[in-house]
Design a protein around this nucleic acid. Sequence first.
DNA 1: CTGAAAGCGCTTACAG
DNA 2: CTGAAAGCGCTTACAG
Lengths: 346, 346
Amino acid sequence: MPKTKVTIKDVAREADVNPSVVSRVLNKDSTLKVREETRERVWEAAAKLNYRPNRMAKMLRTKKSKMIAVLISKFSDLYFTAILEGIVWVAEERGYIISVFSTEEDRKKGSKCIETVYEYGMDGAILASSYVEEKTLQQLRYSSVPMVMLRRSSREFGVMGMLADELAGVSMVMEHLIGLGHQKIAHISGELFSRSGLKRFEGYRKALYENGIPYRVEYVQESDQTEKGSYDAMMRLLELEDPPTAVFAFNDTVAFGAMSAIRDKGLRIPDDISVVGHDNTILSEHTYPRLTTVDSRMKDMGELAAKMLIDAIEGKENAGERGEPECDIKIEPRFVVRESTGRVRK
Amino acid sequence: MPKTKVTIKDVAREADVNPSVVSRVLNKDSTLKVREETRERVWEAAAKLNYRPNRMAKMLRTKKSKMIAVLISKFSDLYFTAILEGIVWVAEERGYIISVFSTEEDRKKGSKCIETVYEYGMDGAILASSYVEEKTLQQLRYSSVPMVMLRRSSREFGVMGMLADELAGVSMVMEHLIGLGHQKIAHISGELFSRSGLKRFEGYRKALYENGIPYRVEYVQESDQTEKGSYDAMMRLLELEDPPTAVFAFNDTVAFGAMSAIRDKGLRIPDDISVVGHDNTILSEHTYPRLTTVDSRMKDMGELAAKMLIDAIEGKENAGERGEPECDIKIEPRFVVRESTGRVRK
DNA sequence: CTGAAAGCGCTTACAG
DNA sequence: CTGAAAGCGCTTACAG
């Protein structure tokens, strides 16, 4: 192992050429005309000495670090692993390493992370957290470091944005339930001031309307997205005079809370009431019964984000100015039918 | 933002001193005697220009990257997030950034990751994966890059090791069950060629012996640690002539499989049979009923690993050769009682 | 076809 | 108390 680091000079000496030739051969510089025999000598020398170019020197010279930053808000985020997996997968393929930062739901800290990204000369960043000071966020537009924001629209900050197609997902949920004969469909919503909370509620209303099912205010319960809050919300639904036969929960965690309430009321899922979640987190395979849900395809989102980012990074080299950064990419969700939904009871 | 990067020369010009003075002031070089007034001018100039030293240049010069690598085997590992959280927490505190690599259960790939760690000049690495070629592993001993291995003994590779105290955890499980009056305690083991599989089985036998409970071969079922395999193992237990009243499952996933089998047999948990898991993964809070389990304190393990690693990195600077790397640190588990265990039925 | 030189942005002995 | 210089290990115009 690197007892004494072997440098380009060592290789040059071994191959009996100038260091610059070593560099150009090893980097496959196409503009270089070199005798085949020399080229081989260089490769052999490099292999013999087990030469690994020093990245730090390379970085300093080329202004390219081959490092990408990923900002997340908190580790307990159930999406985090899937997103990161997708990112790491394509990053590795394209020769980048990734560095993880946690903003911790603290905008000051988020801004510091961005500072660090610049300081370390990272080539780009994927922001899966928007806990960043407004000021910093606004400056992103003028930064020469490409970034892509997950779950945020590009229009806000002039960087590439990537979103789930919320309406499409909810539409799948509602078609499924209506197809099973349900008419009394309730919705335990997320916070109705967040984008996804609003979007999913909108999709719910839209589907009812399009299917000629009257909207009932009492069938919509806002939850704080905790299990406890969702449990309470479900209890309120179950205590209605005319309780629903199916519930569309804002996400899987909310669905869990709801399922507990249903069981505590002595009702069976899906015989008495059907439950649908959203997000297809690791948890949804492990509920009892296993949860029907919408897969937001977070791994795919991570992959796509990394691809777009790296394209932007490498495109920049040629293009000079980066082109249209202000585009939103939508990811189509997938519907996953498991055991928590069934035909409506007669 | 960094439209045109400001360098140490810009600050020097602004403060009207030599770049070397800027460097020494900003790095709080204690050997430097400098007029208070000059010092202030430097700080002001740096602040005014919003100067951030270029890490790449600094790295190249000082041979310190302030970067730590974390190797994991796969993203679906339920421990991963907790370990990483602990690591990131202390790394940030001490001024290091962390870089994540996935070995993917592929030793070749693992060795490549290690290569990359050297190439990028990382200051140290935490190996939460041992999917690394044997050859590479053996060379770790002679590497000048400090490393700590998680869930592996140090003796194998001459690097610091960190282990859970398996026997202590199992002992807690058994005391709990015996305290609830259980005598017919089964064990769905993990693979009996893995360290943890063996250790937990050993703990199970030991506890039986120490409590004067006879060991019954048919009460131990080896599982492949999948849910399906564990389901089958539990079914075998339930079909015994004299079935157990309590089961200690190798880990939470195994416990899930077992719980499904119990439910499918029409039995209730914990009324008819108690179930204990191991690891306190995110899942265990979400089973029905919620799972009693052993908390391996992975976040703490991550924190401790990062602390030890950074101490080694920084200790090296002074100490020259690093001291005793061959030490195993054991993490004491904690027992978490939830709802899947109860008094034995009369 | 290959070499010599400059320079990326820092830090650190060494002068003065 | 502060400055000038060398050098970390590369890459890349420029010579020849």
